[in-house]
Amino acid sequence: MRLAFIEELVALATVNERIALMVGDLGFSVIEPFADRFPDRFFNAGVAEQNMMGMAAGMASEGYHVFVYSIANFPTFRCAEQIRNDVAYHRLPVTIVAVGAGLAYGNLGYSHHAVQDYGLLRLLPNLLLAAPGDPLEVRACMRHLVQQPQPSYLRIGKVGEPTLHTAVPELAPGRWLPVVRRGGKRALLTTGATLALAGQWLALPAYADYDLYTLPLWGMAHKEGQAEQLACFEQVITVEDHLHDGGFASWLREALAEQQPELLLRLQARALHSRVCGAVGSQQTLNEYGGLHCDGRPASDADSQAGRREG
């Protein structure tokens, strides 16, 4: 996803001279194509995220669309108040780009785990969340954000995510996008890089009649229509690499509770158990430990042993 991001950013910046990229001294072997081609629109803020986000807001107030790129929690939690006060409250076109969504940097430790970011950023009324599921959704999200500049959060994985779409899809905030349609009454609904995991589940007998949908663009302002879309199914299972609390399923439940609370029973959530906070391991190990299983089984009490070395 990182490469799709930078390729698309270069393409967009070629025709839009107000697109700028600011990094927090990260992005080695990723950001060079932009930095080399647009040196006047590339800025390394150094290891100083508060100033980075405040400056991005200042530049955005002068007509730039600033993409602020860093890892996991650094461009979000580290400068949360700058995002809230300077970017979102002023409705400025800053796109916060966090690479390493979920537990992509699992072995690097808790500092690099982004499993609470939806919870933080979906509390901002003017901020659009963009959590693409594959490299083509990365491009689709970026095209949407550039066409409609606004405070936004682009949460991308790392490298090697499979491409599930066949073309860059058309996206609209809050609208579920079909990836696999089988015409059944049950569906998996993902946001972010767990699209690949959910795609694997479709091959399993337990999910043989499930459709697969993705919802890359969402946020507080885009709850409308969720009940209407969910009502098309007898069961929907959400999949996300974020803690249960404050995440995507929580957002959907809040929408349903407001719109058609009786639909809540049709919704199941597959998200991460809080036991992953502080745990260290590969992305797959930690996902299993948190209850996101490759074989699609629901979380259980036995998950706390997942991935641990046997004594």
Partner: peptide, 25 residues
Amino acid sequence: VEFSTGSLGHGLPFAVGKALAAKKQ
């Protein structure tokens, strides 16, 4: 008024961003 403040430590980074934009343009 260019910018809302109230939490301290926000004005200078925002101003630096504006000054940078002015230089670049």
